[in-house]
Design a binder for these strands. Structure first.
Length: 921
RNA sequence: GCCCGGAUGGCGGAAUCGGUAGACGCGUUGGUCUCAAACACCAAUGUCCGAAAGGAUGUGCCGGUUCGACCCCGGCUCCGGGUACCA
């Protein structure tokens, strides 16, 4: 009987689905374990071979945990709002909901083929009104809350209103956009509009001004990804920076807690580091510099971590977007500044950070007075200062900051060294060490002491105050798009007002087109009657992360219509025990989710302060991408070999219309409407594409589908092969070569159970040699699964099967545990063999083999060499190692010992099962 | 630029605590089975010298620590992820 994976896989997949084998039901008698995958965006390209990598790993762990007696919650759903469906809708006029529906159906089909043990009764979709009702609900809660800094938690806005009406801002310590100060009297006399504006300053979900990539020609805001070299990827139109009022979430209020609570999470240190750096806590001081623009005098606030270097300030720098630019530009410099701002406007923030080697800037015409020395220094404007961090203005100390140094050298500004003996002729001295000089009262102090001393001085003399600054910015929460959650907000007399919760969900309206209006309004402006009680509704929609921030909670209680999650379900499942997903979410989703969870925790809706206890980052399965090269400002494309003669923009092209790096020109023209009338500059009659290894993703157009693998080799082979490919956490390029070996292994396994005449398994007692193979494997699989070292686990299976093959083992006592051990990895073949061995039902109800004294026949001994009381060297000497080999090992130990100390070996003791001692005098 | 990873044979990778580098699999070569192929099985396989025995060399580059370094430290190079509106 042959291993017929097609029949077997189909049979067991229907069995699981019919018997609802993996349905999770709250059961207080059993310990719970929640295993979660980062849910996919259902792209039109379908599931690619990179997606299942993490899903297979989490499925292995889920199945393993079930076999170990846990009540496992292992759900799946779809992050279904997103740009690609909208783009597709713009191109085709098809409603994104239809496209999404279709894509989800395809994803489900693909997922089912791989044999995952999901509880599909708990599926969620972020674009489902029954789901986004709770996204909108959470938004309204955030709108109706402010963050109390002293209580370190979110509180209802009504409490803030109460405080304002009694004492004004007196005694209020709340996270805010701008420090405000007013009396109760003032508050009580404010109009509704004024009060609304004041409260916006405190709400956790608030409206505020921010800078965005604006494409006037497309009439829309673009992501940095959609902008390349100052032009839109779609269409190639110019893009500029523009200020816009946007909904934002006051994530920054939670910065300290997001940082502190990282300590208790079982995440990798590298990931925690990324989050810590992203949150970017820095201690320093906010200082006031008097600035003079002609006769006008202003107090300008700057933030610095190096108050100790204030004596070395030789100039000040403003971010181009800073509100100070207007105030501090002198009439003579007006033209130069305007020209400079115009240049900078064309660049995205990321481009500005990347191009730090190109030094640009302009003198504002104003001067600032150093509060310590009284010296006047020029105020410059440069793109290396970012508006979003600190106050958007810095004091420049070129001697001790490399960016300031580069700027000073370029514009010939003075450099004053402040540390004894430091050499600043070639580069700045950034290290926080040495003894201060040229610094007045700080002279002679080590830097480490000078920093706090300087801040003390600043506070004492009213020049400024101690401040902790965070790099973490508030999250921009509105998008000028169609395919997202509508905001449950309407504008009553121009005042943003929440919809009553009985109106939720506020459903996405139908529109005639998915593009912005001619006047540049978002697509929702096209809806026929987008009003509530006659007042206009908010026209922007929520971003992708809105729906993905709390989805893990909804899985606990997905059909509840009266709460996001019931107290009972939340109390049982609590939070995610194991979360698997890519590192690309390290600073986006994983910060937003933690923020969202903490907010709900503050309000008492969830019982855990962190959403994800343990987190494993699966590596990327990389794809091989192809590029075409568009000549800037044209629709002409030049072949790879000739591109150096032109100024070009590199654009990803779908690998499915490229063969051996040669572009299928007709397919390319059909690929996107923008390229329909594209022209080409060919080499040797062909268009050659560039290539690169990078992340496999729909946006890179380099997707490979797993269906082919399932067709030819089966799901179990795909599962094993993806695990065998390399360490889970490491990136590796997809390569179908090598999959035969894994398939061969499964066939060999099958032949262990089935001969020509059917099942060959006997009830004979296993031999010690056979038990040894099994128990070596049990030990290995246990440690490997717990360590998520699945590639070595698969190798261990291969070795064990080869050994059993050599031993011609056919004993039930070996083969039955073997098939249970393998079942998390290759569930279909395992179920089939389990049934063949005479068991009814699913192998999921078996229990995972454990080490058991009766199986242990022989054990290897570890010998260690120790000298001076410290173990320095261990060597494995198996119990059955031949005598001469043991002697050889001992000789090599003697050799080693000779290198130690003066080479005098007192004695060597060799006792089997004990430590080898080499004592050196 | 900044933050976080990675680099080991022809290829994917193993070496889990500083102790025999290259497990396991792919590929390649030779062989067995077959009329032939497929399947399967056996053997060899880092590189260089050598008929062999054996020797030399070898974990991206330069340097250091150590009796001993793929592993630890310092300095680089290249590749990947993120960089706040891709999800």
């Amino acid at each position: 009987m042959e291993y017929d994976f097609r029949k077997i896989e189909k049979k067991w997949q229907s069995f699981w689905s019919e018997h609802q084998t993996f349905k999770a039901v709250e059961d207080p008698a059993k310990p719970k374990y929640y295993v979660l995958d980062m849910f996919p965006y259902p792209s039109g390209a379908g599931l690619h071979v990179g997606h299942p990598l993490g899903y297979i790993a989490s499925d292995i762990y889920s199945r393993y945990k079930r076999l170990c007696g846990f009540n496992v919650l292992h759900p799946m759903g779809y992050d279904a709002f997103g740009l690609p469906a909208e783009q597709y809708a713009i191109q085709t006029g098809k409603h994104p909901a239809l496209t999404t529906e279709k894509n989800i159906a395809r994803y489900r089909e693909q997922l089912d083929r791989i044999g995952f043990s999901y509880d599909w009764s708990r599926e969620v979709r972020t674009c489902d009104p029954a789901y986004y009702k709770w996204t909108q609900w959470a938004f309204l809660k955030m709108f109706d809350s402010y963050y109390d800094n002293s209580l370190r938690k979110a509180r209802p806005v009504s409490e803030l209103v109460g405080m304002f009406s009694r004492n004004g801002t007196e005694g209020v310590d709340a996270a805010c956009t701008k420090e405000l100060s007013f009396t109760a009297e003032r508050w009580n006399s404010m109009s509704d509009k004024e009060r609304s504006d004041v409260l916006m300053n405190y709400r956790i979900a608030y409206q505020g001004e921010t800078s965005v990539n604006w494409c006037p020609k497309l009439g829309t805001v673009l992501a940095n990804d959609e902008v390349k070299d100052g032009y839109s990827v779609r269409g190639g139109y110019p893009v500029e920076q523009k200020k816009m009022t946007q909904w934002q979430l006051r994530v920054s209020a939670y910065a300290e807690r997001l940082l502190d609570d990282l300590d208790d999470l079982a995440w990798t240190d590298s990931l925690k580091d990324m989050q810590r750096n992203w949150i970017g806590r820095s201690e320093g001081a906010e200082m006031v510099f008097k600035t003079y623009n002609g006769d006008n005098v202003y107090d300008m606030h700057i933030f610095t971590t190096r108050a100790d270097t204030v004596f070395g300030v030789t100039f000040m720098v403003l971010a181009p977007e800073s509100e100070w630019v207007e105030k501090l530009t002198s009439p003579e410099q007006k033209q130069a500044v305007a020209e400079y701002l115009n240049e900078v406007k064309k660049k995205t923030e990321r481009e500005r950070m990347t191009e730090t080697r190109k030094i640009t800037g302009v003198f504002s015409g104003s001067y600032a007075e150093n509060p310590m020395t009284g010296n006047r220094v020029p105020v410059w404007i440069s793109e290396y200062v970012l508006a979003g961090y600190g106050t958007g203005a810095i004091m420049a100390v070129p001697a001790h900051d490399s960016r300031d140094y580069a700027f000073a050298r370029h514009f010939n500004l003075p450099v004053i060294p402040l540390i004894e003996g430091c050499d600043v002729s070639e580069s700045s001295f950034d290290a926080k060490e040495g003894i201060m000089c040229n610094s007045g009262f700080l002279d002679g102090m080590p830097v480490k002491e000078a920093i706090p001393a300087a801040i003390d001085y600043v506070e004492k003399h009213g020049i400024g105050h101690r401040k902790v600054n965070f790099r973490l910015r508030d999250a921009i929460f509105s998008r000028q798009r169609y395919w997202g959650e509508p905001f449950p907000i309407y504008y009553k007399d121009g005042i943003p007002t929440p919809l009553p919760s009985s109106e939720l969900p506020l459903q996405l309206p139908e529109v005639d087109k998915y593009l912005p209006t001619e006047s540049g309004e978002p697509p929702l402006a096209r809806a026929a009657d987008w009003t509530y009680e006659g007042w206009p509704l908010e026209k922007s929609t929520m971003p992708g992360f809105a729906g993905s921030s709390a989805y893990y909670l909804r899985y606990m209680d997905p059909h509840n219509d009266s709460a996001l999650v019931s107290r009972e379900a939340d109390g049982y499942w609590r939070n995610v025990d194991l979360y698997i997903g890519g590192t690309e979410h390290a600073t986006g989703h994983l910060i937003y989710s933690r923020f969202w969870n903490k907010f709900l925790y503050d309000l008492g809706y969830v019982c855990e302060k962190e959403p994800f206890k343990r987190l494993i980052n699966q590596g990327m399965i990389q794809g091989r991408s192809n590029f075409v090269y568009r000549i800037v400002n044209t629709n002409r494309f030049v072949s790879y070999g000739l591109k150096d003669g032109y100024e070009t923009t590199e654009i990803h092209v779908d690998v499915n219309i490229v063969h051996n790096d040669r572009l299928d020109i007709e397919a390319f023209r059909k690929w996107m409407p923008d390229f329909a009338d594209a022209e080409f500059i060919l080499e040797n009659g062909e268009y050659i594409c560039g290539y690169a290894t990078e992340k496999m993703s729909k946006s890179m157009f380099n997707v490979v589908n797993p269906d082919m693998v399932c067709d030819t080799y089966g799901a179990d082979t795909l599962r094993l092969y993806e695990m065998f490919l390399g360490p889970l956490e490491q990136s590796k390029p997809w390569d179908t070569k090598g999959i035969d070996g894994v398939h061969r292994f499964l066939k060999r396994l099958w032949r262990l159970y089935y001969g020509k005449d059917g099942l060959v398994v006997t009830d004979q007692e296993p031999l010690p040699s056979e038990l040894k193979v099994l128990h070596k494997l049990i030990g290995k699989i246990h440690t490997d699964i717990e360590a998520f070292s699945f590639n070595t686990a698969v190798s261990a299976f291969m070795i064990a099967v080869n050994e059993l093959y050599d031993l011609k083992c056919s004993k039930r006592g070996i083969l039955e545990p073997l098939v249970i051990l393998l079942s998390p990895f290759a569930p279909h073949i395992s179920e089939e063999l389990w049934e063949a061995l005479g068991h009814k039902g699913s192998i999921s109800f078996a229990s995972f083999p454990e080490y058991d004294g009766k199986y242990v026949v022989e054990a290897s001994c570890t010998y260690a060499v120790s000298f001076n009381g410290k173990t320095r060297f261990t060597v494995d000497l198996p119990k059955d190692m031949p005598k001469d080999e043991v002697e050889a090992q001992v000789r090599s130990l003697e050799q080693t010992a000779k290198y130690v100390g003066d080479g005098n070996i007192l004695k060597i003791i060799v006792v089997p099962g004990k430590i080898v001692n080499i004592v050196v005098k």
